[in-house]
Design a protein around this nucleic acid. Structure first.
Lengths: 138, 138
DNA sequence: CTAGGTGCAAAAGGTTTGCGGTTAA
DNA sequence: TTAACCGCAAACCTTTTGCACCTAG
């Protein structure tokens, strides 16, 4: 997992230390892009680092989010999920199999909002059936 | 609060009973369109119906959401909020004062998603500064 | 060396569940 | 009448917090 240089740079730029735990969490997020929850990350991290604690997972996630390496994704009525894809994209929650996948954002750039609102962040959440489940449900 | 005919029709169409508690919860949602959380709804409902319980608020919300009278709104890392505005719109979360307001959806209809995804629901969540806070922060 | 991070355990919300009594239809 | 619903309390799950020990810089 040769990612230290990148992550180190980003963390240092935000005055945050690089620790083995943060590397581990970030590495997992890069490995399998399935938007795990904090608890899922905890279980996976324990395989390589049995002594890691859930509180540390949350701490690491905060550090990674603050330094812009990771984004939070919220799906209705479900625990927060995390993702390391920083390109502009939307999240698609499959109502059949529950997976969350990145999809191309079906909207054009240039958000103009009447009424004096200053937009700093936009998130598009989609729900429906993923390609796999669309076929199965025929 | 003369809303029984509408709500009754919608509920009955979904095989759900009209109860005083559900009327109360729906009424509150219509009164002050500030996207309250379940706990906020509970506190407001208790003023007119002191014996109502939080579990009932959740039950009522489920019934209202299932029957399409109310929508759920999720803001990152915050409790679920509810809204009775069924027109197409987005939600704007003000990072300064924490209010959630309905705003015109800055995207055009006709979501076309490549790759075989079937979209059943789309939600656009925006974050930033509301008009009031934009002025204050000058 | 030492500020910041880790691990543990306990607490704090938000939400769900089980159950005896109540009520809309 | 009776299936659905209510209120209560306990359970559940995610997330936060406090604190002693540890470690990256």
């Amino acid at each position: 997992m040769k990612l230290s240089p990148d992550i180190a740079h980003q963390l240092v730029a935000n005055g945050i230390r690089l620790t083995r735990q943060r590397e581990e969490v970030f590495g997992i997020l890069l490995q399998k892009r399935d938007h795990p929850t904090a608890t899922e990350l905890f279980l996976r991290a324990k395989k390589h680092m049995p002594s890691i604690s859930l509180a540390t997972i949350y701490n690491c996630l905060d550090a990674l989010v603050v330094s812009g390496l990771v984004k939070q994704v919220n799906v209705n009525r479900a625990p927060t999920r995390y993702c390391a894809n920083l390109k502009e994209h939307s999240h698609f929650y499959c109502e059949s199999c529950g997976t969350v996948s990145d999809v191309e954002t079906p909207v054009k750039k240039g958000w103009s909002l009447p009424g004096g609102y200053t937009v700093s962040q936009a998130e598009v959440s989609l729900r429906g059936l993923c390609p796999k489940c669309s076929k199965t449900n025929l």
